[in-house]
């Protein structure tokens, strides 16, 4: 469901889940655009040799994925703030799930707060965050 206006919302509303594309070609595309071309993001073998489970998704890409989750749900939203904590690595070529829920509403400013998570296939929270979003 797409949200167009603040009045369409209720506290506790859930954003539609998204399974983002964190395949290696997309990670490399992001790397080219952001300068995040380090081997720990783009090379599974080198990452494993360094003790990681494999290449990992750049934290700021996870953040961008969460911003996109908000925009897909509420295209007219203005994201004023996004605060993400990178709790644990998110694996490249995995199938994570992004979720969001409305956890605060301010009727005067028409701003809301959203809890955001990215969980891995086993349901563990890997990226945690909150966003402050304004709606018309």
């Amino acid at each position: 469901m797409t949200i167009l206006q603040y009045q369409d919302l209720e506290f506790g509303d859930e954003l539609p889940e998204v399974t983002p594309d964190v395949s290696m070609p997309t990670i490399r595309r992001f790397g080219e655009a952001s300068g995040m071309t380090y081997w720990r993001f783009t090379d599974h073998e080198k990452a494993r040799a360094a003790g990681l489970p494999g290449a990992i998704v750049p934290g700021i890409m996870s953040q961008g994925i969460l911003v996109a989750l908000i925009h897909r749900w509420a295209p007219s939203a203005t994201v004023h703030k996004i605060d993400t904590i990178f709790r644990a690595p998110l694996d490249v070529d995995s199938q994570p799930v992004c979720r969001g829920v409305v956890t605060d509403m301010n009727d005067e400013t028409k701003t809301i707060e959203i809890d955001l998570t990215i969980c891995n296939e086993t349901g563990e929270t890997r990226v945690l965050g909150t966003a402050v979003v304004e709606l018309p």
Binding site: P20, I27, A33, M61, G64, L69, R72, P75
Partner: peptide
């Protein structure tokens, strides 16, 4: 800017 947005799954 464009490639950053597309890689993150932006559609707007």
């Amino acid at each position: 800017m464009l490639q950053f947005a597309l890689a993150c799954g932006e559609e707007l």
